[in-house]
Amino acid sequence: MGIIGTVKEMLVPDTEPGVGYECVECSERFDETRETCPNCGSTEIKEVEGFEMRPSD
């Protein structure tokens, strides 16, 4: 685990939902970013759910 992971563990409680990813084509959801969807192989993936500590635009 790198320094960012260590800092995140210190600042973000376990109840924080974090960021999820969803395939635009088949709506498959997964926890980590990927180049292609593990279900259908699509390359169109979007970020879903909010990360409360991320500044808003």
Rank of each mutant, 00 (worst) to 15 (best):
N39P: 00
C23V: 10
T36L: 13
M10F: 02
E47I: 07
T6N: 06
E44M: 04
T43Y: 00
V7G: 00
S27T: 12
S42C: 09
G41D: 06
D57H: 08
S27N: 11
R54A: 09
K46P: 01
E22T: 14
C26G: 09
C23G: 04
G41Q: 07
R29W: 03
V19D: 01
C40L: 01
N39W: 01
T15S: 13
N39G: 06
R29V: 12
G41R: 06
V19E: 10
C40Y: 02
G20E: 09
P55N: 05
V48S: 03
F30P: 05
E22R: 15
D57N: 10
I3P: 00
V24T: 13
E16I: 07
E22F: 02
C26N: 12
P38S: 04
S42W: 03
V12R: 09
F51C: 08
R34G: 00
E28N: 09
P13K: 15
E22S: 15
R34W: 00
M53N: 05
G2F: 05
L11S: 08
R54N: 04
F51T: 06
M10R: 13
E28A: 09
G50W: 08
G18M: 12
G18H: 08
M53W: 05
P13E: 14
G20A: 12
C37F: 01
M53E: 01
G2S: 15
D14V: 14
I4L: 13
T43A: 07
T6S: 09
C40W: 02
E16D: 14
N39Y: 04
F30A: 04
S56C: 02
E49S: 06
